[in-house]
Design a protein around this nucleic acid. Structure first.
Length: 589
DNA sequence: GCCGTTTTCGGCCCGACTGTTTTCAGTCG
């Protein structure tokens, strides 16, 4: 689940820049209020407002106070503060609050195990105002002198600081999934374990994962816990109770395990999948119905009788809701849509009929054309686009004669995989001005074209926007690959007017990619949602450089679902004929 | 601070574990 400060560490999204700035500022405001000891509901109001502003699909800087107040979780006060920020570039009350809270306390609360209360305590008693200060205090055993703290606290905080430094608290989806599946595999064979699954942000398939939440159904919890903390990959045990325990793996990743009775499996899975905001909303629905929802089930308040708990479907149904895909559970409107009976028909892995972006050893792939095609055909695809790099990619792009040779090879391979057509494509490089590698007459020889930015990531917003718009306008470009070029944890998104890009894509019949590589996931969830709202088509593509990369499709599908992408709007959920028509229409044929 | 077929005040989700404490506050999810 999302923790304080994690919100968008890697997402320096540059769409409506005001939204991000406001999210960061309101989130800071919430933290400062919490440190100041403000009422917890007030703190939450700021957190919710931060998320609402950050996730809004329009630039909140363009909205008047009345429009702002239409946004859920933004009231009169927040609307006024937002307008103040837009007009003056600052928020006076926040500035004042910053003066009141010792600098550095907010940083301290990022340490696992150190919340606002202890941060204030060590600051007041020991003058600690930064992580280095705290380390020094721990080293000299000064914490244990403070009433309420002890030697154990020193030890735990030291471990928390190390973990924070090493990982920044997050890992990519593939890393998390591998660890989770390994542990699940270990536990599944045990007699005491009836069911085991991962929950939390991993089940929701957030693009980065803080720690891994596992859930086991068992009638003998202590036995399961015993087995869990004794697994070979466990380096240290962070916490250990009868039903709840946490360990660190050798690589310092935290895995939390919760053991519940088999008859409450569904309620527990629902609860531990979250998100926190989704749970708050579902519980509020329960309360309105005179019910109480916890990880132990849905209960009637008056009689204490449990009315649902066995499966998630049962729990949602008893709340008057259809089952909701885990990837949608972010309190991003899914509960309201479910109440209206209006949940969209989201794309799923099984809907996909092909993959429209992949490489071979003709450029920087590691497998041959035949190997890649064989792996694609084995997945049951009806079509597969081979899109090796075009010539302007430094050192590895294809010269035109290589392109033509590859085309001949593909022609001779058509029919080799009876149920799969091979599209000959290319991943073009969008140069600084929005130009492409080859002239139009050469582009016309391809079946399908992806165009991507591979250089000059730091152009000013206007120039970057013009650059992408020009590529989109080209009648031969069918997909913009990894549109924001972010590399999770390593490279920020390019600064671009994404609204303009999405609108142009919708208008010209150009799809935008959800690149499935777990280091990219680009477009990301929120951007997908904006694309859907603006009517642009999305291609969910692996950008595979090896046969195993084809399996990344599930990460892209999850990202697309998080952005509420429907099957109808997914280019590679369409038939081969429809994909060809998509290409032909843009070419004006 | 937000919100409203309990509507302008009074709610706002619920429970486990730890550490330091003798009955519970803090943190986390």
């Amino acid at each position: 689940m999302l923790r304080r400060g994690d919100a968008r560490r890697y997402n320096s999204a540059r769409m409506p820049r005001t939204n991000e700035r406001l999210e960061a500022l309101l989130s800071e405001w919430a933290d400062l209020l919490e440190i100041s000891g403000a009422d917890s509901f007030r703190v939450r109001a700021y957190q919710k407002a931060a998320r609402a502003a950050g996730g809004h699909s329009r630039d909140v800087g363009d909205l008047g106070e009345k429009e702002l107040r239409q946004i859920p979780s933004i009231g009169a006060h927040m609307a006024a503060r937002i307008r103040e920020f837009v007009e003056t570039g600052t928020m006076h009350d926040l500035e004042e609050l910053r003066e009141l809270v010792p600098a550095g306390l907010r940083e301290l609360t990022r340490i696992p195990g150190l919340g606002p209360k202890k941060a204030v305590l060590v600051n007041r008693e020991l003058g600690v105002a930064s992580i280095p200060d705290l380390l020094d205090a721990i080293e000299h055993q000064r914490l244990r002198a403070v009433k309420g703290l002890g030697a154990k606290t020193e030890e735990n905080l030291l471990r928390g600081i190390r973990n924070l430094r090493e990982h920044g608290g997050r890992m990519t989806l593939d890393v998390a999934l591998r660890v989770a599946e390994d542990v699940i595999e270990e536990l599944r064979g045990r007699a005491a374990v009836e069911e085991v699954a991962y929950a939390g942000s991993l089940r929701r398939m957030q693009d980065t994962i803080g720690d891994i939440d596992l859930l086991v159904a068992s009638t003998t919890a202590p036995e399961v816990t015993e087995a869990f903390v004794g697994l070979p990959g466990v380096q240290s045990v962070v916490a250990r109770g009868d039903t709840k325990s946490s360990v660190l793996t050798a690589k310092g990743l935290q895995v939390d395990l919760r053991v519940v009775a088999p008859e409450v499996w569904g309620a527990a899975l629902q609860y531990f999948t979250g998100s926190k905001a989704h749970n708050v909303k579902t519980r509020a629905i329960a309360v309105k119905k005179g019910l109480k929802l916890s990880e132990y089930g849905l209960f009637e308040v008056e009689s204490g009788r449990r009315i649902a708990s066995r499966t998630e479907e049962e729990v949602y149904a008893a709340l008057g809701l259809p089952w909701i895909l885990p990837t949608m559970r972010e309190d991003a409107g899914e509960v309201e849509a479910a109440l209206r009976g209006d949940l969209p028909d989201l794309v799923s892995l099984g809907d996909l009929r092909g993959d429209l972006h992949g490489h071979t050893d003709s450029t920087d792939g590691v497998a041959t054309l035949e190997e890649m095609l064989g792996a694609a055909a084995a997945r049951g695809y009806a079509y597969y686009a081979v899109t090796d790099h075009a010539e302007k990619l430094h050192m590895s792009g294809m010269k035109r004669e290589t392109v033509l040779e590859q085309r001949d090879r593909i022609r001779s391979l058509q029919g080799r995989f009876p149920t799969m057509a091979i599209l000959h494509g290319c991943e073009l490089n969008i140069d600084r001005d929005g130009g492409l590698d080859y002239p139009d007459e050469f582009l016309a020889g391809f079946d399908f074209l992806v165009a991507s930015i591979h250089s000059r990531f730091n152009l000013p917003r206007d120039e970057m926007t013009r650059r992408l718009l020009r590529a989109i306008e080209n009648p031969f470009v069918n997909v913009i690959g990894h549109p924001t070029t972010r590399m999770i944890g390593r490279r920020p998104e390019v600064d671009v007017d994404l609204e303009a890009v999405l609108s142009a894509a919708a208008r010209t019949g150009t799809a935008l990619e959800v690149n499935c590589h777990p280091d990219r996931l680009d477009l990301r969830d929120e951007h997908v949602r904006w694309a859907v709202e603006r009517g642009a088509a999305i291609a969910i593509s692996t950008d595979a450089h090896a046969p195993t990369h084809l399996e990344n499709m599930r990460f892209g599908v999850a990202t697309a679902q998080r952005g509420w992408l429907t099957k109808a709007r997914t280019l590679n959920a369409r038939s081969l004929r429809d994909v060809r028509e998509f290409v032909a229409r843009k070419r004006g044929k």
